[in-house]
Computed example of a mutant assay.
Amino acid sequence: MPRPPLQIGTWGRISRDEVAPGVWRAMARFRDFDGITRKVEARAASVSKNDRGAKAEQALVAALRDRAMPAGDDITPDTRLNKLAEIWWLEFMDQDRAINTQRRYLEVKDSYVCPGVGGLTIREATVSRLDRFLKATTAKHGAATAKLSKTVLSAMLGLAARHGAIGANPLRDVAKVPVNRKEVRALTLEEAAALRAGLRQWQLDSRPRGRKRPDDLLDVVDVMLATGARIGEALALRWKDVDLKAERPTLTVTGTVIYVPGEGMTIQEHPKSTNSRQRYYLPRLRLRCCSAARFSS
């Protein structure tokens, strides 16, 4: 029966022999990352009669360990999750994600995932260890942070699985993070009417306290009531997104307003999700408001 091959990046039994008086050689078979097994050797002069090649073997082991180290961004079972996180982040940044998504994922990676489990190697990232980490994160920082930490970890270990460093992604088998979802309730017609009346009165107040009150807040609320758009999406609308001359006038959500640290508020040229990119037919009430606003601008 043929001898089984060495694992990639490992070596076999080390042998020693004296190749010249006082000079010893240590040799071993090493299986390189291209799958080829090669002989590696190191030589050293003996320091005493009792040495018998021990110094040569030490030099060989050091050389073999250096040879077994991953080159560049190679991912192996012994890669630590801190290093895996760096490699994954470079790949993630190439995916053209939304600015707020990048910011939040980076915060979770640096503040929770790496401090919590970054010292583990990929082979040590077992279901039980990751499950314990996520439960502790839920208890200390809340379910939302734990759920996002699970998302980041799953993406990282998915990358490790694609590189053959792990057989399967262990995040598939950890317990679900319990999230208490709030019931979504739409305003009744009476509540919507009361909201619009209150806003109109607030805008028309002739003696406001503090900063000058905006005169277009009711328009923003009307867009949200008519379309169901998020407030950031409503604030990001531009006249090029509105077609008042069509047989059935439309409004198209194409972006959202976000805050960028160091820059302030800016328009992101796509909404929060793909499903948010919608075209809505404008009801008559909203059509009159848009026409009036366009005329006054």
Score class of each variant (00 low, 15 high):
residue 96 D to H: 06
residue 248 R to S: 12
residue 231 I to F: 10
residue 25 R to I: 04
residue 110 D to C: 03
residue 288 R to L: 03
residue 113 V to T: 13
residue 222 D to H: 04
residue 1 M to I: 12
residue 113 V to H: 02
residue 49 K to I: 02
residue 13 R to V: 07
residue 202 W to E: 10
residue 225 L to R: 03
residue 232 G to D: 02
residue 240 K to W: 00
residue 127 V to Q: 12
residue 199 L to A: 09
residue 212 K to Q: 00
residue 179 V to K: 10
residue 248 R to F: 13
residue 156 M to P: 10
residue 230 R to D: 09
residue 237 L to P: 08
residue 31 R to T: 13
residue 97 R to D: 01
residue 105 Y to T: 13
residue 28 A to K: 13
residue 276 S to V: 05
residue 63 A to Q: 00
residue 194 A to V: 06
residue 39 K to M: 12
residue 55 K to V: 15
residue 55 K to T: 10
residue 93 M to K: 10
residue 100 N to R: 13
residue 181 R to S: 06
residue 100 N to K: 02
residue 259 Y to C: 08
residue 115 P to H: 08
residue 115 P to M: 07
residue 286 R to S: 09
residue 7 Q to W: 06
residue 39 K to D: 15
residue 19 V to T: 14
residue 36 I to S: 07
residue 228 G to T: 02
residue 259 Y to S: 07
residue 280 Y to V: 11
residue 164 G to N: 02
residue 119 G to F: 00
residue 132 R to H: 12
residue 65 R to L: 03
residue 129 R to Y: 14
residue 156 M to H: 11
residue 12 G to R: 06
residue 32 D to L: 07
residue 137 T to M: 14
residue 256 T to M: 00
residue 94 D to V: 15
residue 257 V to G: 14
residue 55 K to S: 08
residue 68 A to G: 11
residue 41 E to W: 04
residue 19 V to G: 14
residue 269 E to S: 02
residue 63 A to S: 00
residue 249 P to Y: 05
residue 126 T to G: 02
residue 171 L to F: 05
residue 152 V to F: 07
residue 200 R to M: 02
residue 36 I to T: 04
residue 171 L to G: 01
residue 212 K to F: 01
residue 41 E to A: 04
residue 67 R to C: 09
residue 279 R to C: 10
residue 72 G to A: 15
residue 238 R to V: 03
residue 111 S to W: 15
residue 264 G to Q: 14
residue 92 F to C: 14
residue 211 R to I: 01
residue 275 N to M: 07
residue 162 R to M: 10
residue 146 A to E: 01
residue 120 L to E: 07
residue 296 S to W: 09
residue 49 K to P: 03
residue 75 I to T: 09
residue 109 K to F: 03
residue 126 T to R: 04
residue 224 M to G: 15
residue 150 K to T: 04
residue 100 N to E: 05
residue 281 Y to A: 11
residue 136 A to P: 11
residue 203 Q to Y: 07
residue 193 A to W: 09
residue 137 T to E: 13
residue 42 A to D: 10
residue 95 Q to F: 05
residue 59 A to Q: 10
residue 55 K to L: 11
residue 227 T to W: 08
residue 199 L to C: 09
residue 38 R to D: 06
residue 168 A to N: 08
residue 139 A to P: 10
residue 205 D to T: 10
residue 269 E to Y: 00
residue 15 S to K: 02
residue 288 R to T: 07
residue 7 Q to I: 14
residue 204 L to R: 07
residue 149 S to C: 15
residue 90 L to D: 08
residue 210 G to Q: 05
residue 174 V to C: 07
residue 61 V to L: 08
residue 71 A to K: 15
residue 32 D to C: 05
residue 242 V to N: 01
residue 165 A to K: 04
residue 97 R to G: 02
residue 166 I to S: 12
residue 290 C to G: 07
residue 216 D to I: 12
residue 141 H to E: 06
residue 108 V to M: 09
residue 220 V to E: 04
